[in-house]
Design a protein around this nucleic acid. Sequence first.
DNA 1: GCATTGGGTCAACCCTGTTGACGTAAGGCG
DNA 2: CGCCTTACGTCAACAGGGTTGACCCAATGC
Lengths: 233, 233
Amino acid sequence: MTTRVPQERRRRRPTRSGVLLSEELIVQTALRLIGEHGPEALSVRRLGAALGCDPTALYRYFHGTDDLVLAIADRIIGDAMAGFVPGDDWVASLREMALRVRAGYLAHPRAAAMAAHRVTRRRNEIHAVETGIGLLLTAGFPPADAARLYLAFIDTVLSHAATEAAFHALPPQRREADHGSWRDVYQGLDPATYPSLTAVRAELPAMADSSFEQAVDLLLEALAARARALGQK
Amino acid sequence: MTTRVPQERRRRRPTRSGVLLSEELIVQTALRLIGEHGPEALSVRRLGAALGCDPTALYRYFHGTDDLVLAIADRIIGDAMAGFVPGDDWVASLREMALRVRAGYLAHPRAAAMAAHRVTRRRNEIHAVETGIGLLLTAGFPPADAARLYLAFIDTVLSHAATEAAFHALPPQRREADHGSWRDVYQGLDPATYPSLTAVRAELPAMADSSFEQAVDLLLEALAARARALGQK
DNA sequence: GCATTGGGTCAACCCTGTTGACGTAAGGCG
DNA sequence: CGCCTTACGTCAACAGGGTTGACCCAATGC
C-alpha cells in the first residue's frame, strides 16, 4: 500500500454503511471512542467499526497510527485554546494558558496521555506558541530569553498535564492503587528509618492531590522576579 | 492461571535451558533488552526468549505487564539515587537529586517512558521521598509546606524527565521529525500572522533543546525566595 | 524416600497494526 | 449521455502482542 495521503480529496465515496469519511470525522470519532470506552478502545479496527467502514480505509487518511495521534493532539490543543485572548497582565495570561491546556488534556485524558510529548507541528500548536512567546516579549524579555523561558514554561505545563492525564487514563483499579499508596504507605513505615516522612505524615494523604497549580505558580513567581530584575537593571 | 506471586520463593527450578529465574534477573534482563533493542523489544515473549524460558513463566513472578513495569521503574530510581547523600546546601542537594533522576531516566529512556507517571510504592521510591522532604524541612519549611512543595518539585522533575525520556524513546525517524519541526516550522511562517515567532526566529532551533535545567533552576529560585521570606518573617 | 506443591512448559484464544491486491463507483471530459 | 480514469473502500492475510488454563516434573520438607 502506497499510503499516499493527498492534500485535498476530490472524489469521496460512501462506505458500505453509507458514511462519508473525512479527516475531521475520523478525529472526532476517535476522541469520542477514547472518551467513552477508554484509551485501549482506540484501535484501527475499533475505530473502523465505530465509523462504519473497513479498518484499513483509515490508511487513506492517515499514514499510520502515529499520524492519527498527532492529528488528535492538535485538535485537543485547538479546542483548549479556542477563544483565548491574552490580556494586559502577562503573568495572568500565561496562567490561564496553563489552566486551559491542562483542562483540555483532562477532558481527553486517554488521548492526551498518548500525544502529550509530541510536537504536532500543526496549526493549533503553532498558534499557541506564537501567543505564549508574545506574552513573554511584552513582559520585557529579550527574544533569546523569551524563547528559552517560554520553552521551560510550556514544557513544565505540558509535562505536568501529561502526568495528570496519564494518571486519569489508568484503569480505575490501578489508579486507585497508585492513589491510595500515599494514604497507606506511611502507616507501616518505621519512624527511625524514615524520620522526615514521619514528621510530615499528617500531610501525606495530600500527596495524592495534583501539584499542577502549585508548580505553575512557583514557575510564574520566578519568571515575574526575573522580569522585575530586568526592569530595575 | 491463579497468578499468585508469593513473597519468598523456596523452590526454584532451572528452566529448560538451565537458567535460574528470579525477579532480579528478570528486571535486569528487561532493562538490557529495552536498552539494546528499543522499547518495542520488551514483550513477554521476547523477554522469555532472552531469558531462555517460556514466556509464561514470567507470570509466576509478576502479575502482569503492569507489575513488571513498576518493578523496572523502582529499579531505575534505585540506581539513579545510589550513593547519593544530601549535603548542607539544600538547594544544591535538590538540584543534584533532580539531575540524578533525569540521568537515570535517560539511561533507560524507553523503560522510563512507560513507567514515569506511576507510583511504584516500592522501597527505592519511598527512600527518595524521605530524602527530598527531609531537605525541605532543613530549609525551614513547616511540615505542611514541605510536603506540598516537595510534591510540586518532584512532579516537575519527574514530568520533565518523562517528557525527555519519551522523546528519546521515539523511533529515530519520528524523533528527528519532531526535533526538526522547530528548525523547519518557522521558515514558511507568515510574519504578519506570526509576529512574535518572527521576532524570535533566530532562537527557534534552540526550542529543540531540553528545558530541564532551566525549569528546575526556575523552580529552585522560587523555593529559595520563599524560604528567605520565611526567615525574614 | 515419600508426598506436596511451586513453577516451568505447552497450546490456545483473541487482540493488535499494517500490507497488497482487488474492484467498484464517482467525477472529469468529450 | 456515456466512457475512462482513478480514488478509495474492501478483503484476506501476516506477524506480532498479552493472557489463560491444563499439564506435569522435580525440588523441598518431613
